[in-house]
């Protein structure tokens, strides 16, 4: 059964590590719905999160092929309760006071902030589950959306579960 998975990958923060991963995805025909990267609190370690869709077999291959890469330290499929957040910036054209008020109301409903105001444009910042951002954008589509930028989802397990790294020097 095809399902949406959010996968976190801890990687060594080396040049081209992201290229290695995305090129592997492309080569093996895995589709990435979204991707986000950033440093972690551990020096030299970055964290990437992917949203991918696939059946169990595909997802198993995604994880195994990721693990094959030398610079990949840990791969976790967030299967349990998780936090999932995406950030978006959206610039919308506004004409007149009425539209301004309507847009403000929509923003409030989605807890979006107006982060920039111009004579004929408003820019919103919204964070949340990607599905929420989809709905926000849908609402705005009735107005003149000029520009959007989404970050890709980041995720973390709820509760006390954490992704741990093994740290051990191997003598060869």
């Amino acid at each position: 059964m095809r399902q949406r998975h959010v996968i976190s990958v801890l990687v060594e923060d080396h040049p081209r590590v992201l290229t290695r991963i995305t090129s592997m995805f492309a080569r093996r025909g895995f589709n990435i719905d979204s991707l986000a990267v950033g440093r972690t609190h551990i020096p030299g370690v970055s964290r990437i999160s992917f949203v991918v869709e696939g059946d169990d077999r595909t997802i198993e291959q995604v994880e195994k092929q990721l693990n094959r890469l030398i610079e990949v330290l840990k791969v976790v499929d967030h299967e349990g309760p998780r936090l999932e957040r995406e950030l978006a910036l959206v610039k919308v054209r506004v004409e007149g006071i009425e539209e301004r008020i309507e847009l403000k109301e929509i923003a409030e409903a989605f807890r979006a902030h107006i982060v920039d105001v111009a004579r004929h444009a408003l820019t919103f910042e919204v964070t949340g589950h990607p599905a929420k951002i989809d709905r926000f954008l849908e609402e705005l589509s009735n107005y003149g959306v000029l520009e959007t930028m989404r970050t890709g989802a980041v995720a973390m397990d709820r509760g006390e579960r954490v992704i741990k790294l093994r740290a051990r020097r191997e003598a060869v």
Binding site: V11, E12, I70, E71, L73, R166, R169, V172
Partner: peptide
């Protein structure tokens, strides 16, 4: 070096 440290490869 005498040893190798490849934490992502075991």
């Amino acid at each position: 070096p005498e040893t190798i440290d490849l934490p992502g490869y075991r």
